[in-house]
Design a protein around this nucleic acid. Structure first.
Ligand SMILES: [Mn+2]
Ligand SMILES: [Mn+2]
Ligand SMILES: [Mn+2]
Ligand SMILES: [Mn+2]
Lengths: 217, 217
DNA sequence: ATTTATTTTTAGTCTTGCCTAAAAAAATAT
DNA sequence: ATATTTTTTTAGGCAAGACTAAAAATAAAT
């Protein structure tokens, strides 16, 4: 049995490990999970005992296949619940995360798979993140960051990397939503801000904002 | 903030207190919650500190208004989730309880109220138990136990008191479901068994079974 | 190659929620 | 009325998961 706390650590390691890093550092986990390094050391030993993580003192952590699958299944639940909340219960995309953080720990294989079917087997959550299948697999992401595009290129907003409610509320305020067609008009060298064309008008977005917007072409 | 464990104790005290008892005993709570009397004593002190329960040493426990509302809201969530699982996710009534035991602890006022609306404001759960409203109130139950009926009386099966999966599976096997029309044909004095007429046939049910079946007339 | 700074681990403590065993109180039986 | 049984509480402890402070290891800088 994997505890709620263990699931949260697995998720953190999974996300941090995705950046192509071989081993995740104790401090990085502590920061992500908003705890202290000493707590992480304790937990990481437990995960290693349970064959969920590989851990060598002073050399960071990685997930075993078993740990990676467990993490992916938690993320699968998180994202399916987010879809449920938005599609069925009138939540907006900036309200779902905290509730999904709770719902992702509900243990019932039947529940998650029936929920998946009920929602029509969605492939992405309300923020554009992919939903892993029963085996923890998902199609590789093809969208590209706005800052990596050429001037004049056009695409559909299909992923926002930051899902914090403050960022999502900024997007709401500026009438930006997943699925919108966006065209890159200009890069400003001074502050790396970007002028983009949205459906109804053109706006300037800061580098910090641009970093979090991904388009599919 | 009420913890998961506290919520379970509140629920237990609420259910035990419903039988018109003034104060609930330590042992009764321990049995219901499958723990030990000493653990109950500890927790009951905490509930009293938080103004959720009235507790006098050696004299049992009762809920304060605040505690009763908190308990009713947990039960509200439990029963709404049970409806969701049966109505939307193809669970059968004998599969929902354990999952609902987990889901009832999810904290989000918006979630429970939107779920309520999504389900069409159901008044009863899949076992016939009433669903409390936002204020913890529900209409008094009018159904009557089979053992309290006259021979020849007929009614609709509208509440099963035992929601354990073993009992519900017995009902499934014998083709008995909520909403069925049932007629009382005979009481057997020897073992208090009852002969009833269901939609398709007549069967003899034991006293233990009859005790858990309630009809509305 | 040392010294200094940073990261990580260990040691010890705290809280929550549970337990067993013993003591105390209340209820029941003689 | 006293003795016995049952119930409840107290005392002491354990495991999980967190923390702080100190020690040890590693990395960076001189
Ligand atoms: Mn989220
Ligand atoms: Mn998301
Ligand atoms: Mn139930
Ligand atoms: Mn029920």
């Amino acid at each position: 049995m994997i505890t709620l706390s263990e699931e949260n650590y697995l998720k953190a390691i999974y996300h941090l490990g995705k950046q192509g890093v071989a081993a995740v550092s104790t401090n990085a986990i502590a920061e992500k999970i908003e705890s202290k390094a000493s707590s992480v050391t304790d937990m990481v030993k437990k995960l290693a005992d349970k064959n969920l993580a590989n851990y060598v003192k002073y050399q960071g952590v990685s997930l075993t296949n078993e740990g990676r699958l467990a993490a992916a299944l938690v993320i699968r639940k998180h994202r399916l619940w987010e879809v449920f909340l938005v599609e069925k219960l009138n939540f907006s995309w900036d309200e779902v995360h905290d509730v999904a953080e709770q719902l992702e720990h509900i243990k019932s294989l039947k529940l998650v798979n029936e929920l998946d079917a009920f929602l029509g087997f969605p492939t992405h959550d309300p923020h554009g993140d992919p939903i892993p299948d029963k085996d923890g697999k998902y199609a590789p992401n093809k969208s590209v960051n706005i800052l990596d595009l050429e001037i004049g290129s056009e695409g559909i907003l299909s992923l926002v990397k930051d899902s914090s409610d403050v960022f999502l509320k900024y997007l709401n305020k500026n009438n930006l939503a997943l699925g919108d067609v966006i065209k890159v008009l200009e890069f400003e060298p001074f502050d790396d801000s970007v002028t983009i064309q949205t459906k109804e008008r053109q706006i300037i977005i800061s580098k910090e904002v641009a970093k979090n917007l991904y388009l599919s072409l």
